[in-house]
Computed example of a mutant assay.
Amino acid sequence: MYLVMNPKDPEVSVRLADDGFAPYVWGTDFSFEVNAYARADLHKKVEHWPLDMVTPYRKCYGIDPDEFASYLGAPDSAIFMAYLDKQPVGHVVVSTNWNGFAHVDELAVAAGARRHGVAKSLLDVVKFWSLKKNLPGIMLETQNNNIGACRLYERCGYQVGGIDHLRYRGIDPQTSEVAIFWYLLFENRC
């Protein structure tokens, strides 16, 4: 996907996904560069997590829009798409988890559209959706090789609720990838 943006002040908008969701996903690069694995610590800010540097490589998750087809129009889930200067550049998939929290099943921003407030705008919509449903908070998971995402979640008020060193060992027994579970707890619910 080729993005042409107004570099001075791009306009971000978010709305419910429509029939354009699948073509947008199939045609967009969501990869990111990994150059380190963080040693996540429940008791320290992300900026103080030690880093184990690695030879840089591109990480790309296999995003399949069909996986979330049943979410469209369902009462306990939603897919929102973000637009930057009217071009689709990001999405978030949210559902109500078994424990009552809103669960961010997927959050992705096109590689060329990062650092324009797209992910924060999507998280703001998830917060609004969650509060409207009177849920106790939001939960999501990322990995220790996605340090930019960890910094974003922390800036948005999320806290680390757990770290799982074994989650990805079934995929790769030698992996250094660690799952980090983030929570945003709502203090005053209606």
Rank of each mutant, 00 (worst) to 15 (best):
Y37E: 03
P88K: 03
S70P: 05
L84Y: 02
G162D: 07
W26L: 07
P23I: 11
A40P: 14
G73N: 10
G148Y: 00
K133E: 08
W26T: 09
V46L: 01
P88R: 07
A74H: 14
M139F: 11
T142C: 00
V109P: 01
K44G: 00
A17N: 07
L3N: 06
Y168H: 04
A119V: 09
Y61C: 01
A108E: 06
P136I: 11
Y61L: 11
E11M: 10
A149V: 02
V46T: 09
I138C: 12
K59E: 02
H103L: 04
S77T: 11
Q143V: 15
C190K: 13
S176L: 12
W182P: 00
V93H: 01
S95L: 11
G100S: 04
R58D: 02
D66N: 15
L51N: 02
R189C: 08
V25L: 09
V178R: 02
R155M: 02
I138Y: 10
M5D: 01
L42Q: 02
H43Y: 11
H103M: 04
V12F: 07
G170A: 10
N99P: 05
L140S: 04
V12T: 13
D76K: 15
L72G: 04
P7Q: 02
W26M: 08
F30H: 06
Y24W: 14
V125N: 01
Q159M: 12
S77P: 08
I171E: 15
F68G: 03
D29Q: 08
Q174S: 12
R169Y: 03
Q143G: 15
N146H: 10
C60Y: 05
E33M: 14
P173E: 07
I147L: 09
L184G: 06
S70E: 06
